[in-house]
C-alpha cells in the first residue's frame, strides 16, 4: 500500500490500535484504509461525494454519504473513540458546531487544517494584495470550498473558548515535518496543523 500523505500520517499516529474511529470527510478512504489495515481500527467513514463513498465501499470500507454539518447529529454520544476531520473543518458551514458534535460523538477528536497564518499566505495577501493561492489553498476566492479558514492561533483560541482540551498539537512545515517551536513562530512557519482534542467534562453535551 502506498505511504500516507504526511499530514494524514500525523493524524493516523494519534489513533490508538483497535480503537473505534469515524473519519468525517474521508475522501477516497486512504486514511481509513490505513487505520483499518495497520492499526486494527474499527473504522467508519462519512463522505460528501457519492463517488468517493462508492470507491470506499468498493475497497471494503464502511462509509456512508453524509455532511459533517448536518449528519453528525445522528450519532449517539460516545459512539467512537475518535472522530477525525482532516482538511475539512475550513469547508464546513458551522465549524464550531461541527467541533462540538465531534466531541459529543467521540471521546476524542482529531482535526487537521491548513494554517491561514502560514508565511507565504501572509505574504501574498499583505504584499501581493490578492487572496492567497498556495499548494494547500489552491482555489480562487470565488470558487473555494474553504469558507472558514483560520490560523493555528485562531483554532487554539476557539478550543479555549469552548473548553476543549488540546492533548497534542503538531505543526507541520511544507515538507510535512513536525516543527517544535514556540506557538507564535509555529503559527508563522507551519503550513498545516493537527490537533488531538478531548472534551473537558460537561463540554460538548447538548
Amino acid at each position: 500500500m502506498a505511504a500516507l500523505r504526511a499530514d494524514l500520517q500525523r493524524v493516523a499516529d494519534m489513533v490508538e490500535r483497535g480503537a473505534r474511529a469515524l473519519d468525517v470527510g474521508c475522501g477516497d478512504g486512504a486514511l481509513l484504509e490505513w487505520l483499518v489495515r495497520h492499526r486494527g481500527v474499527d473504522g467508519r467513514g462519512m463522505e460528501l461525494s457519492q463517488a468517493g463513498v462508492n470507491a470506499c465501499v468498493a475497497a471494503g470500507l464502511s462509509v456512508i454519504q453524509g455532511d459533517a454539518d448536518t449528519d453528525l447529529r445522528d450519532y449517539p454520544d460516545d459512539a467512537f473513540d475518535y472522530v477525525i476531520l482532516s482538511q475539512t473543518l475550513q469547508a464546513t458551514r458551522e465549524p464550531r458546531e461541527v467541533l462540538r458534535q465531534m466531541l459529543r460523538v467521540g471521546k476524542r477528536a482529531i482535526v487537521s487544517f491548513p494554517n491561514f497564518a502560514y508565511w507565504p499566505v501572509r505574504l501574498r495577501l499583505v504584499f501581493g494584495g490578492r487572496m492567497p493561492e498556495t499548494r494547500s489553498l489552491p482555489h480562487k476566492w470565488y470558487d473555494t470550498p474553504n469558507i472558514h479558514l483560520c490560523s493555528i492561533d485562531d483554532f487554539r483560541a476557539l478550543c479555549a473558548e469552548m473548553g476543549v482540551r488540546v492533548e497534542r498539537a503538531v505543526v507541520l512545515d511544507s515538507g510535512g515535518r513536525a516543527i517544535s517551536l514556540p506557538p507564535l513562530i509555529a503559527n508563522f512557519l507551519g503550513e498545516h496543523a493537527v490537533f488531538l482534542l478531548r472534551r473537558d467534562q460537561g463540554v460538548g453535551r447538548s
Binding site: V57, D74, F80
Partner: peptide, 18 residues
C-alpha cells in the same frame, strides 16, 4: 434506514448507484 443505523452507531455503508 442509514440514519437509524447511525443512531445506534451500527457498522453501515450506504451506496447510491447512479
Amino acid at each position: 434506514i442509514v440514519h437509524a443505523l447511525n443512531a445506534v452507531a451500527a457498522n453501515v455503508s450506504f451506496v447510491e448507484i447512479d
